[in-house]
Design a binder for these strands. Structure first.
Lengths: 166, 166
DNA sequence: GGTGAAACTTGGGACAG
DNA sequence: CTGTCCCAAGTTTCACC
């Protein structure tokens, strides 16, 4: 497993940076119980190895005027790899689409979209998504409210798992 | 609109911090074209006003050993507010569940879940989610691959919108 | 993994437009 | 009220053990 390369301190670093990405290196070093220079070396190594893909401020979409969040379930006519890739590329080009996941089962893709209001989402839906080549069906569901929206992964699950195999 | 309190520099700051949350204040100040002290004051004000909810390292779930991502569509028996709230609280307590969104339409909730492997997800599904009080139906879809997973909001949409009304 | 030291960043105070 | 200049305290990031 890929985690076997990481020791407990590395996992602790990832966990802390996931919950507070702007923590200073000295505060992080203190939390994980080592001094600052080796802590920074570990962080750089985790970044270089791809365990940390980036750092992002978590901005409040609603406060910023994005009142509408929508999940769109998309079915395609052709599931040939080149057609799947073409649809994925189109999703990357649409900035309203924040996430695009290919799924198993009857739905081919689920898209998480964000828009300033319903009418601008509707114009995206009818003008872009529904008319895109190869799109067979789109079912949309408006988000009424968000009960939980945690970034990243549950480190407690990882630790529980490692404790079992140890 | 809530964005009217923000000027172009504030939006630029949010946009930069969304794409790189660990940028130093001097680098940020240079990017948005003001000097460091007022830039820092703006960042603090944006944090205090709730536009910035936090900062997070974006860790690679698969590299860390979370091989399985699943979307679960959940239907409840009762949609009374107290029953909805009870289910949402249960989702917050399950660390495998990273996101829980209440939707309109036939599905009541969509959950984004992450797990180390299929069997640990299955044991969560059968042991926790399906047996939870008030849960009527659960349809799950495995994520085959992720074509796009951008955090936050599309600032280009916001700018286009503001340009129109200006 | 730790230590010390140099360069840089942060974040405050005083002040101008 | 927002920006600029400056400075002390704290932080990052070397080279070396």
């Amino acid at each position: 497993m890929a985690t076997s390369k990481l020791d407990e301190i590395d996992r602790h670093i990832l966990s802390e940076l996931q919950s507070d990405g702007r923590m200073t290196n000295v505060a992080l070093a203190e939390k994980v119980g080592i001094s600052a220079p080796p802590c920074l070396r570990r962080v750089r190594a985790l970044e270089d190895a791809g365990y940390i893909k980036g750092y992002h401020a978590d901005v409040d979409a609603r406060e910023l005027g994005f009142e509408v969040q929508v999940f769109a379930m998309v079915g395609l006519n052709s599931q040939a790899e080149s057609d799947l890739a073409a649809f994925e590329q189109r999703c990357r080009d649409w900035s309203l689409v924040r996430e695009c996941h290919m799924l198993n089962g009857e739905i081919d893709f689920i898209l998480k979209c964000v828009a300033p209001d319903l009418s601008s989402f509707q114009s995206f839906l009818t003008g872009q998504l529904l008319t895109a080549r190869n799109v067979a069906s789109v079912k949309t569901s408006l988000v009424i409210r968000v009960a939980k929206d945690d970034p990243g992964v549950p480190f407690d699950v990882l630790e529980a798992r490692l404790a079992k195999t140890a």
